[in-house]
């Protein structure tokens, strides 16, 4: 195990030095997706804004909360969720989609994990811009506590990387896992307080507390919307990261020699 961990460290070190490579690959991935379109990457903004608008109008009818607060609640929650969801799904396919690369070059594997993470952050950046614009309608006054959203976003970055290091090899080995996770994420969306407020019913509040996604969303949404730093959620998220980081070191080191056979 120890030699594997040393080799893993070398992989990550090399991959970080190859930053221009994964940056360019991530940009090309995005360019490929919107090439030959008139709107280009503004499609990300347009589709997110429209999606949120419709959700606010439809679900706002059923919510007891004032429209401005509910609208912002949905915009922030859904923006964060869309990043989490696409990052988790991309983390699963990071190795599988790079199959020709893994079998054709000796590029260290973290390059593909970082490429997937950066690609999602590029999209997330645009979504964050929409979220920031939506804060114009914030009903409550601003305070410096809103800045706690920034370490919250940093946690997103850290989680993305270790999660990719765990999910990419495991999904390449056990193909069912990818479908299970995709399905699981779809279900998880409905038990996460994004389209509904946890305060509307006791049972829903209970479910929300047990759902780690709630805590991930809260560490960014609460400081921005309610001027509140959710200490409980922070502890949950930090604990998940501590366990996840250790697990990712073990999974990466244990799988790095086998990935080329699995993809």
């Amino acid at each position: 195990m120890v030699p594997s961990i040393i080799a893993s460290k070398r992989d990550w070190h090399q991959a970080l030095r190859l930053a221009p490579l994964w940056t360019n690959l991530a940009i090309e991935d995005l360019r490929d997706r919107y090439r030959r379109t008139v709107l280009g990457i503004s499609w990300i903004i347009v589709s997110f804004a429209l999606f949120v608008a419709v959700k606010v109008v439809v679900f706002g009818q059923m919510a007891a909360t004032p429209m401005a607060e509910f609208g912002l609640f949905v915009t922030l929650g859904f923006g964060l969720w869309s990043y989490i969801n696409s990052m988790v799904v991309d983390a699963c396919t990071a190795y599988m989609h790079s199959r020709p690369w893994i079998l054709g070059t000796s590029i260290p594997y973290p390059v593909f994990l970082l490429q997937a993470t950066l690609r999602n952050w590029l999209v997330f950046g645009l979504v964050l811009a929409v979220m920031a614009a939506a804060l114009y309608w914030k009903p409550t006054p601003w305070s410096p506590r809103a800045l706690y959203a920034i370490p919250g976003l940093l946690i997103y970055l850290v989680t993305s990387i270790w999660l990719a290091a765990i999910l990419a090899p495991l999904c390449a080995r056990y193909r069912d896992l990818y479908h299970a996770i995709q399905t699981g994420m779809r279900l998880l969306f409905f038990v996460t307080p994004i389209l509904w407020m946890p305060s509307i019913s006791g049972i829903l509040g209970q479910i929300a507390r047990l759902n780690p996604m709630t805590h991930y969303i809260d560490i960014v949404r609460d400081p921005l919307l309610y001027d509140r730093v959710p200490a409980g959620s922070w502890w949950v998220v930090l604990a998940i990261n501590a366990i996840g980081l250790v697990a990712s070191v073990v999974v990466y080191a244990a799988t790095r020699r086998k990935v080329a056979h699995w993809v």
């Binding site: 360019n24 690959l25 090309e28 054709g104 070059t105």
Partner: peptide, 27 residues
């Protein structure tokens, strides 16, 4: 290792851009 010369080519990118990408791949 040269196993697949077309590896990493982007159909939608220009020839020049592809040269740059392949150079980055080679480190």
């Amino acid at each position: 290792g040269i196993f697949n010369m077309h590896l990493g080519f982007r159909q939608e990118a220009t020839g020049y851009r592809n040269i740059v990408l392949k150079g980055l791949v080679a480190g």
